[in-house]
């Protein structure tokens, strides 16, 4: 039996040995990653469906997103993936302080990512580029003057037509721009939620490593959270071009 006193403190007794425990955790984590991928897959399908329904609208409306901020966030998140990997490397080499430093750096990068995201969201909130029925933005990017002002009856059934009293003309908005923002907010929001959860986990890692609960002989939690963090990074690498770089 493995109930002897020599077994290390992190060993759970329903396993045969430490090796089995490690393998099982890793396996479970990968199965969880599969679940995560499927979660986002549903949203990617929604994205594909609506982009194929309204191709012009997607291309037109994506210009409302700030590519520079998106690019900045991509760089930040990729760097944080690197520091996460370095933290695991450091703990394997028993470099506790370096590992804590790298984890802290990862945490800070994640915070920076959310900060930039907040700025983007805030701006959209201000100008009314919101999902569904809360959408109110009517900037030049989504509106065009209807050329044949007298044939207006043809358009009135499509609901995209409105009349501006100042210019005394009818305008046509793009096909359902709010749908783009619905999908944008749901997908980036869910991704942001993952970043926030990841930050919580990393904070816990910093604490546990500092307390010596995670060390060069037992760093399974750090490795697992590392896998999770790479997934979060990977999803962003898909989201960035799909929203910011189309057209």
């Amino acid at each position: 039996m493995s109930h002897d006193n020599s077994s290390p403190s992190f060993f759970q007794h329903h396993f045969h040995d430490v090796e089995q425990q490690y393998e099982t955790s890793k396996f479970g984590m990968w199965a969880f990653i599969l679940t995560e991928v499927l979660t986002f897959a549903g949203l990617f399908v929604a994205y594909i469906v609506y982009r194929s329904w309204y191709p012009d609208m997607f291309v037109g409306v994506h210009k409302l997103l700030d590519v520079n901020k998106g690019l900045l966030n991509t760089v930040v998140l990729i760097t944080s993936s690197l520091t996460m990997a370095l933290a695991i490397w450091a703990i394997q080499k028993n470099l506790k302080k370096l590992s804590i430093f790298m984890l802290t750096a990862t945490f800070v990068f994640a915070l920076a990512f959310l900060g930039v995201k907040y700025q983007e969201y805030h701006h959209k909130y201000e100008v009314g580029q919101l999902p569904g029925k809360y959408y109110s933005y009517m900037g030049p990017e989504v509106v065009e003057v209807i050329k044949d002002q007298d044939k207006i009856d043809l358009y009135t059934r499509t609901k995209n037509v409105y009349f501006d009293a100042e210019t005394n003309r009818f305008y046509k908005t793009m096909n359902n721009p709010h749908i783009f923002f619905s999908i944008y907010f749901v997908m980036t929001g869910l991704h942001g939620l993952h970043v926030a959860i990841g930050m919580g986990l990393i904070a816990w890692l910093i604490y546990s490593t500092a307390r010596g609960k995670i060390h060069h002989k037992y760093y399974t939690p750090m490795e697992m959270i590392g896998i999770f963090w790479h997934l979060v990074d990977l999803i962003w690498i898909y989201l960035f071009p799909l929203f910011y770089l189309i057209g």
């Binding site: 499927l38 549903g42 809360y134 749901v186 869910l190």
Partner: peptide, 21 residues
């Protein structure tokens, strides 16, 4: 199950925020 979960989220968002999907 994750696909169901995300569907239920979208349904709830539809009710709360009228996202229109």
């Amino acid at each position: 199950t994750p696909v169901l979960a995300i569907t239920m989220v979208l349904l709830m968002l539809e009710r709360f925020l009228g996202i229109g999907i």
